[in-house]
Computed example of a mutant assay.
Amino acid sequence: MVLAVVAVIATVLIATRGGDEEASASQTPAGTAAQNGYGQGTQGSGSEGYGHSSGVGHGTEAEGGAAQDRQAERSEPQPVTEVDKTFLVAVRQAGLWEIPAGRLAQTNASSEAVKRAGLHLMDGHSKLDQLVREDAEILGVPIPDQATPEQQGWVKQMENARGAEFDRIFANLLRASHGKIFATIGEVRAATQNDLIRRHARQANQTVLDHLEVLEDTGLVDGETFADVEKAVTPK
């Protein structure tokens, strides 16, 4: 009787141990896979393991390569077109006559709004003139040392005017000039491939827009001036 009981117990223990070993054996591959799942995998596993790990790795390499390409592009000489060069020349010439015009407004004008506009012109074009000289030197673009004969004639006309006459001449000459160059700035910024020209166009745009507004604030700009600008900037 005792021997029979002992035999039963032994049989149960053997069966239990065997079940545990089978369970452990069946869990081992899953446990290994889980451990290798986060980017480790097994050598030669191809797409096995944590699938996104391979994707992220390739994405990072691609992004790094693209960043290097962009850096290489920036380090290469950027093109300077004839339009870019003409733009720099125009900005330079504008400062050469509009700064003196702004200075004349302080002595010859009778309107405080005109004097204020003159101050804006002196400040804005002084900063643009410094920028254009720096950019022209960097890009190797020759720029003039004097305004065009037409621009010099405008300055002479203002030198000979006083009071209300000066106010009217100043407001209309400067509003017409700024209106035409404002349209040109947009064309240059839209087409240029040069980072310096893009920066310059952005600064010029902000400056000219400010000048348009202070000139219009004088209330002296004639309808004929607006019509002249519209004709000049309308695509042919």
Rank of each mutant, 00 (worst) to 15 (best):
Q68D: 13
G153L: 08
F182Y: 11
G46W: 07
A94D: 08
A25V: 07
G55K: 14
I99Y: 03
G51T: 11
V5D: 14
K115F: 05
T107D: 06
D69G: 12
V12R: 06
R162A: 14
E61Q: 13
V5P: 11
S75K: 09
A164D: 12
Q193L: 06
A66K: 10
G46Q: 14
R198D: 05
G59N: 12
V91D: 03
A113M: 02
G65E: 12
V56K: 10
F166S: 00
A147R: 09
T81C: 02
D20L: 14
Q157E: 15
L13E: 08
G223H: 01
P79I: 00
G102F: 00
V208Y: 05
R175A: 15
V132C: 01
D167S: 02
A191D: 15
P79T: 01
G223F: 01
A147D: 11
A227D: 08
G31Q: 15
A147F: 09
V208R: 06
E48K: 14
L119P: 01
G64C: 05
T81Q: 05
L121M: 13
A147H: 06
L121N: 11
S54H: 09
G57L: 10
A204Y: 02
E165V: 08
A30K: 10
Y38E: 09
P235T: 03
A161P: 04
Q193T: 06
V221R: 00
G64H: 10
V141C: 06
A10Q: 11
G57F: 09
E22M: 13
E22W: 12
G64Q: 12
V91H: 00
T207M: 07
K231A: 14
E165H: 07
E112Y: 03
Q27W: 13
A66G: 04
D222H: 07
D217G: 08
H200N: 10
V233G: 03
V132E: 00
V56I: 15
V6M: 06
A10H: 05
T60S: 15
A171S: 15
G18N: 13
D217Q: 11
V188M: 03
T218W: 01
L119V: 14
A204D: 06
T86N: 13
A23K: 12
P29D: 03
Q106Y: 01
E22G: 05
